[in-house]
Computed example of a mutant assay.
Amino acid sequence: MKRRHLGLFLSFWAFVAVPVAVTGWYLFERAADQYASRVGFSVRAQEFQAPVDLLSGLGNLGSSTTSDSDILYEFIQSQEMVELVDQALDLRNLYAKPENDPIFAFDPDAPIEELVDYWRSMVAIYYDSGTGLIELRVRAFTAPDAVAIAEQILAQSSIMINRLTAVAREDVTRYARQELDQAVARLKEARQALTQFRATTQIVDPTADVQGQMTVLVSLQQQLAETYIELDLLIENSSESDPRVAQLRKQVQVIQSRIDIERRKFGLAGDGESDDAYATLLGRFEELNVDLEFAQTSYLSALQGYDTALREAQQQSRYLAAYLSPTRPESAEFPQRLTLLGLVSLFVFLIWALMALIYYSVRDRS
């Protein structure tokens, strides 16, 4: 064998055969088996249909929410998801289980950034933006661990969608709830003011009380008129010295005094209107009653608006629909030893061949 052929043969063994042999030994003797669990889901938006639509069969139960699926796609790959799963399952120790596999196992003392990178290599995401379907292939070194991680991803994704739903509902109902709170506050103030008025005046309904007082006043005025008529008739038929005239005059004074007292209650006396006059009380009562009616109308309107906002919020309800529950693997799919060995063999062979061609090309020219 010529010297250059011997050198080529030795270089082949050194740069191709030995690396391929070491790689094959590691893959088949040291590399730990990896099990893959698959889970698939999509984000759905609940749509409430009218009874006519339900009977006619024109309504749909839900529709895909692509924007939420985009958010979920990014969330699954995020550091927040990794931290949540790590807190629930001790992810570092799960990925560090193979003690004799430094290539594929994870270093439990590594920082969170490296754990996130390792997570992205172990959790493959297949996302169809057109349909909003998301499917995951979750790998771990034992089948139960792969299933547990897949279930935890599904649970945390559902929590995220519920959080998005709560935020959307809060945005829809915030203004309506503020209006309702203000209407309730106005209604309480109006009722308290009316209650305070009744407690102060000791009158439940001034209108009814005024009607009673007016009846008394009309009766007194009628008695006064009858007494005047009787007095006039007596004066025409007798003299001023008649004791009955003095008695009737005294009766007129008493009735007139009582009428003045009753009229003063209504603020109709000639000495001005007092604070407790019925006219003042009635005006204040009507003012408070108008305020109460306005507050009640505002409350009913705000309540109707809030109910409408709640219905709109319900129509924006989102939920996570799993069309593929986490599967339990029975055999290891990874690492794909033959595929990796073939790729390594091809890679080192191409490098060796390229180096050999370069070497002989330079040698022939020199």
Rank of each mutant, 00 (worst) to 15 (best):
Q87V: 15
R4L: 15
V184H: 02
Y35V: 04
A96P: 03
R258D: 10
E293Q: 09
A246K: 15
Q152M: 13
I351R: 00
Y175S: 09
G130T: 13
V16F: 05
A332C: 04
F9W: 05
F141Q: 09
S42I: 12
Y278L: 04
R186S: 01
R3S: 11
A176I: 09
A155L: 13
A225K: 07
I358V: 11
D86G: 05
N289Y: 03
S11A: 15
I351P: 00
Q87N: 09
L91Q: 06
M122D: 08
S238Q: 06
P51Q: 13
R263K: 15
V252A: 09
S238R: 00
Y278G: 14
S157T: 14
Q202A: 02
P329N: 04
V254W: 00
G24F: 13
S56T: 14
V18K: 11
G267Y: 02
A193P: 11
A14I: 03
T207I: 01
D171V: 15
M214V: 08
G7L: 13
S239K: 04
L300N: 15
V290L: 10
L61G: 11
E312L: 00
R198L: 01
A176Y: 14
W25C: 06
S67T: 07
D145F: 01
I255D: 00
T201R: 01
R44F: 12
A150L: 05
I153C: 03
L89C: 11
A14T: 08
V167Q: 06
A269V: 04
R249H: 07
S121H: 05
R3W: 11
G270E: 12
A185L: 01
Y73W: 02
L281D: 04
F75V: 08
I71G: 12
Q213L: 05
V123N: 08
I351A: 03
N289C: 02
V172Q: 06
E236L: 10
E83N: 07
Q46W: 07
S241R: 14
N237W: 00
F285Y: 15
Y319T: 06
L303A: 11
D209A: 14
L94M: 10
Y127F: 10
R328V: 12
Y299W: 05
V172E: 12
R311I: 15
G305S: 09
A176P: 06
I229E: 15
Y319D: 01
L300W: 12
V210H: 00
Y323N: 14
Q196Y: 14
R163L: 00
E135A: 13
Q46N: 08
V147L: 11
Q222A: 15
Y278E: 06
D271C: 03
S325D: 05
S64E: 05
L288K: 02
V123I: 10
G267C: 03
P329A: 05
A185Y: 01
L231K: 06
G342Y: 14
L133V: 14
L91G: 10
A277K: 02
K250E: 05
I149R: 13
E189D: 08
P206Q: 04
F48T: 12
R120A: 13
P51W: 03
A193M: 03
V43Q: 13
V254M: 03
Q49Y: 01
F349S: 08
E286M: 02
V123R: 04
E114C: 13
I235F: 00
L303P: 00
S239E: 09
F285G: 02
V218E: 10
Q296C: 12
Q251H: 10
F28K: 10
A14S: 11
R44V: 12
N93C: 06
E135C: 07
Y228P: 10
L357T: 08
P243C: 08
Y359M: 07
L282N: 05
